[in-house]
Design a protein around this nucleic acid. Sequence first.
DNA 1: ACCTGAACACCGTTCAAGT
DNA 2: ACCTGAACACCGTTCAAGT
Lengths: 216, 216
Amino acid sequence: VWLRPARTYRTAPPLTRDRIVAGAVALLDSEGAAKLTMRRLAEHLGAGPTTLYWHVRTKDDVLDLALDEIFAEVPLPDAADWRERLSALATGWRAVMLRHPWSAALLVRPMLGPHVLTRTEFLQATLVAAGLNGAELTAATYAIAHHVVGAALAETASRQLADAAAEHAAAQYLRDNAEAYPTLAASGHLEEPDWDDAFARGLDYLLDGIAVSLAT
Amino acid sequence: VWLRPARTYRTAPPLTRDRIVAGAVALLDSEGAAKLTMRRLAEHLGAGPTTLYWHVRTKDDVLDLALDEIFAEVPLPDAADWRERLSALATGWRAVMLRHPWSAALLVRPMLGPHVLTRTEFLQATLVAAGLNGAELTAATYAIAHHVVGAALAETASRQLADAAAEHAAAQYLRDNAEAYPTLAASGHLEEPDWDDAFARGLDYLLDGIAVSLAT
DNA sequence: ACCTGAACACCGTTCAAGT
DNA sequence: ACCTGAACACCGTTCAAGT
C-alpha cells in the first residue's frame, strides 16, 4: 500500500482513504477482527457495498492501513537516559496494542507503514546513541520489538479465555494433569499472571543484557 | 478443544480426528492458511463437504489442533547447562515455526494444547532448576517465549515480501525517505538481516540479563 | 455411530453502468 | 472522478436424511 499514493480530489469528497481507515479502526475496536467486512465497513460509512474499492485495492490494504494508523498513538518519550527512553517507548507501544486487541493478529504482515517506521526509527536511533552498531544493533532492535509484540500477543490470546468458565476449566485441566506438568501446575501457569510486572521484568532482563554488551 | 475427548470407535474408521489434523497440517504447509477451507480439507480427505463436523466442532478447533500438533516436532534438548538447554529449546522451537509459516498467525489463540504445554513445562522447569522462582520465573518464562514467537512472526512477515520486486520497492522507499528515517536507512533496515544471527544474539541478551539476576 | 447433500446466511472482488 | 448494484465464485455451519 505504502507505495501507492492516496487519490487526490478537487473538492472535499464524502469518502476518502482517511475516513475508511478511521472507520475500520472504529469497527475493529468495537466488534473485533472477525466482524470487519468490506460490506459492513461500507455500510458503516454510508456507502454502497463495493464503493471502497475505488479508494483501496483490497481488504488487506485496509488492514495494513488500520494497523499503521494505531501506531501513531505510540508516544515518543523524551527521557535523556537510553534505558528510560526504551522502557517508555516499549511500554507505550504495548499499551496501544492492548487497547486495540485485533492488532496483534495483523503482525504477520510486513510492518512498513510510515507510523510504524517512525517508531522503529526512534527505537534504533536510541540504541545507536547508546553505542550499538552492526549486528548487535540489529539484534537489539528486533529483540525489543519481539518482547513488545510477544507480550501483546500472549496477553491478547489469554483474554480470549476471559469467559470465566473457560478459564476455570483450563486451570482445572492443568491441575488434573499435574504429574505431566508439575512445574506449570505449581507456578499457577494458567492463572492470570501480573502481565505488567512480567513485561517490565522481561524488558529489564533484555536491557541488562544489552548494557552488559555495551560495557565490554 | 483440549477438554473434549476425541470420539472413540469400535472399528478402525475412515475418518478420525488424527487424520483430520494431519490433513490440515499438510494443506497448511503446502498451500497456506488462506487456502485451508473446511470444504477443501474434507475433499483432501476424501470425505463429503460437511463430514468433518462430526469429529470437530468448528474450524477453529481444527486450527488449534494443527498448531499444537507441530509443537510435537520441537526437540527437548538434554544438555546439562541451563543456558544451553534454553538456547537449544528456543532454537528448535523457532525452527519449527519457520518450517510451518502459518503457525505464527495462529498464536493469538490460547496455547493450551498438550504438546505446547509440554514445551512450556520444559522451559519453566529449566528456569526453576537454574534458580528462578516467583515473579522472576514468570517473567523469564514469558520473555523467552516472546523472543521465539516475535522472531518467527517477524521473519515470516518479512518473507511475505519475498517477491523480489516488492522487496526492492520497499528498500527504495526507505532510501527515498532517508531524511525521515536516517537510522533505518543507514542500517539497511529493510534489507534482509541475518535472521539466525539476530535471533541468537537477542536470546543471549536475554539470558545474560537472567544470569545477572541469578547472580545477585 | 458415522456420513451425506441441500440449504442458509454470509463473504471478497469484478465490472458494466450510472452521475 | 466517483459511486452503484448485480453477479460470480466462494465461505462456515446446520440439519434432516441416509446407512
